[in-house]
Design a protein around this nucleic acid. Structure first.
Lengths: 220, 220
DNA sequence: CTTGTAATGTACGAACTGGTACGTTAGTTT
DNA sequence: AAACTAACGTACCAGTTCGTACATTACAAG
């Protein structure tokens, strides 16, 4: 009884073990990919043994799904905190873009997991009921900002929430996910500290410029 | 003698065999990832046997590198053909963006290979001397367009060629690479035919709008 | 037509890898 | 304090996977 009781350090702690497995597994999957990650290696990097992985997660695939679920839920938790309701449309969307940038910057393992999941045609996400309908909150937020911007006349471009989310995401995601090949081919590390501030500013300006309609063919 | 001689269909043809191996391998690597792809499976999908893979490419890793080299060189060949020199700066950059869009759209396997290579920290690209300094041609082109745009007063934003290339690439790349998870979470297939034209127009407008400086904080 | 060699096919092995059978211990309940 | 169960450890196996030793054949040269 009393699950949370830890006055004396327990040697056996299910929650702790599960958490450690997830943490180590996340790093391994992010670094080696799904097929490239080794269950034995994950086990060696923990205090517990391989047996525990199967005790709590049944299979490598289930473990990967659990890692994805945990990572996505953490993302969601952060996104909920974004408060841009009190800002004017232009500043609201700019801020959202910059916060998205910060978030991607801070959760690089998560980005890699998503990239891996895309290589596998999102087959694991499909198997998880937890992960469906997880995108709607952001879309609602963007929708409100867009409506306000249209009403105030700041936004001219015809674009829906999904489009805008895609613009922002693509930039922030690519910067992290493709840093290696981009760096190898163009000699610039997009994730280097000295480039951070400039690129962060770029996302914001890009979305705002686009929504203002300055890119249309009939504009001078 | 006479390598190209093929009046009678030869049963033994090194070039043909090598080409088929590369083609099949490209598809397998793109679908399963590097570690996920199986040499035996690649062999089964060809007319020849696994022995030939090792006869011509020595190892799985070398094969993957060869696939990357072939894919990148094909990309480069297409990019060389882009002729935007005669266009005005705004139309030139817009056209470049749209052509990049088309190119990514047409070479999805290549996109996936690059994504895979990024998961593996571009370690294979680094091992290939062929693949270094491959990005410069595009950068030169963009540089010229930017200079012309600055001179004509069309472009106001301070951004160099690498930045602009990144904006364009991120959008085009993300659309293909993340189509699966994006579709699963937001219910829209970015690669579906009905979205193609709209998104293609978006890249162009986005870059142009950004370069015109409409996103800056001090612009009304 | 013989002979040399590039190209190809067959069979197999050593190491790895996901997964499990079985035994043990800590902590809780009564 | 006995008994019960969740949590954990060890040893191991069966299937897979990259790679190779060895045999063979098509083709070109002289």
């Amino acid at each position: 009884m009393m699950r949370g009781m830890t006055t004396t350090e327990r040697r056996r702690d299910a929650e702790r073990t599960k958490a450690e497995i997830l943490q180590v597994a996340q790093r391994e999957f992010a670094r080696k990919g799904y097929a490239g990650a080794r269950v034995d290696e994950i086990a060696e990097l923990m205090r517990t043994t391989k047996r525990m992985i199967y005790y709590y997660f049944s299979s490598k695939e289930q473990l990967f799904i659990a890692v994805l679920e945990k990572a996505y839920s953490e993302v969601r938790a952060v996104e909920q905190k974004v408060d841009v309701a009190h800002l004017a449309p232009v500043e609201a969307i700019r801020t959202l873009a910059e916060l998205t940038f910060d978030h991607h910057d801070a959760h690089r393992d998560f980005i890699k997991l998503v990239a891996i999941e895309n290589i596998h045609q999102a087959e694991h996400i499909s198997k998880s009921p937890v992960l469906a309908n997880l995108g709607t909150p952001v879309l609602d937020l963007i929708e409100r900002i867009l409506a306000a911007g249209k009403a105030s006349g700041d936004f001219v471009t015809e674009a829906d929430a999904v489009d805008v989310h895609m613009i922002i995401s693509s930039f922030c995601f690519f910067r992290v996910s493709n840093a290696h090949t981009f760096g190898a081919l163009f000699g610039r590390d997009m994730t280097a500290p000295e480039n951070r501030a400039r690129l962060r500013k770029m996302v914001g300006e890009m979305v705002v410029a686009y929504l203002r309609g300055a890119g249309a063919a009939d504009v001078t």
